[in-house]
Simulated scan of single mutants.
Amino acid sequence: MTISALIIDDEQLARDELAYLLEAARDVDVVAQGANGIEAVELIEEHHPDLVFLDVQMPGLDGFAVIRRVMDRHRKQKNGSAWNLPQFVFATAYDQYAVRAFDVNAVDYLLKPFDRVRVDKALERVRCRITSGAAAAGAGESPIESQLDALLSLLKGPQGGARAAQPAKLIVQAGSRLLLVDQAEICFAEIEEGVIRVVTQQFEGQSKCRTIEELLDQLDPAVFWRAHRSFVVNINQIREVVPWFKSTYQLRMNDKKQTEIPVSRAQTRRLRELFNL
């Protein structure tokens, strides 16, 4: 049996490295490669692969959004010429603790830089799942569909249940460490020369996001507010609202330095709404 595969990653070097390692697997045929989430959805619909190596963080649609969109389109076609959902293997630079959720519900992961032994292990797991899935095929929802649903539910957290959702985490790089930070602990984030600095009450580090918009997609919109084009603030970490020049304001934050952040004129109205000024 030949396994048809896609490689989706916004880094050309990562795609080349993984394609090189997969050449040693005689039963894997890389049919196409893509550089972003939009291409991922289109290539999956075009090739109907058995397996997709999918980068977690990409511009536009991230890996999870790709899966959601693919599943939505798959379900709409169920009564027509439906195709089988592929197995997904996440590719990520996160450490093992950050990706522990990815290792459940039949979805594997590979850490960057890729390792031949780990790639071989992932392929073996995929082979077993494809075989077991074929044996269990029948009426009703497919095993892979149930597994992906469970994964997405796990990542979103419990909805509407009796148990409160756990605070969402954000990856922050501090030196050589990748730390999982509760969003509630973040005071603010600032972008400067393309680098996003994330500041908490205890430390500061860098986000792997490329833009403020990409960072905001990962944050709770009820708590985080873009007070200025270069700043996103946690409204629960504002220590003081300071009147400034010509009816403008600055925000004194709750970090160690009590950083003062400007509020743009366009956001002044929103500030007044938040705090009844």
Rank of each mutant, 00 (worst) to 15 (best):
S132R: 15
A165Q: 07
R163P: 02
V198A: 03
G194W: 01
P158V: 08
L155H: 03
A137Q: 14
R210F: 01
E145N: 12
I144L: 10
F203L: 09
C209I: 00
Q201A: 15
S153K: 10
V199E: 05
L170S: 03
I212V: 15
R129P: 05
S153T: 04
L152F: 02
E214R: 11
Q147M: 09
A134R: 15
I191S: 01
L180Y: 10
I191C: 01
S146N: 12
V126F: 05
G133M: 08
F203D: 07
S142D: 09
D217P: 03
L180D: 09
E204N: 14
P167D: 05
S207C: 04
I171V: 14
L179F: 07
C128D: 13
R127K: 13
R125W: 07
T200D: 02
L170E: 03
E193C: 08
L151D: 00
A164P: 00
E204L: 12
E145H: 14
Q159T: 12
V195I: 13
L155E: 04
S132K: 15
L180G: 13
I130V: 14
F188K: 07
Q201T: 15
R127F: 07
R127G: 07
L154F: 06
S132F: 11
E192H: 11
A136S: 11
L179A: 09
P167V: 05
Q183M: 11
L178N: 08
L180C: 11
L154M: 12
C209Y: 00
V199T: 15
S146G: 14
V195M: 06
G133E: 06
G161P: 00
Q147A: 14
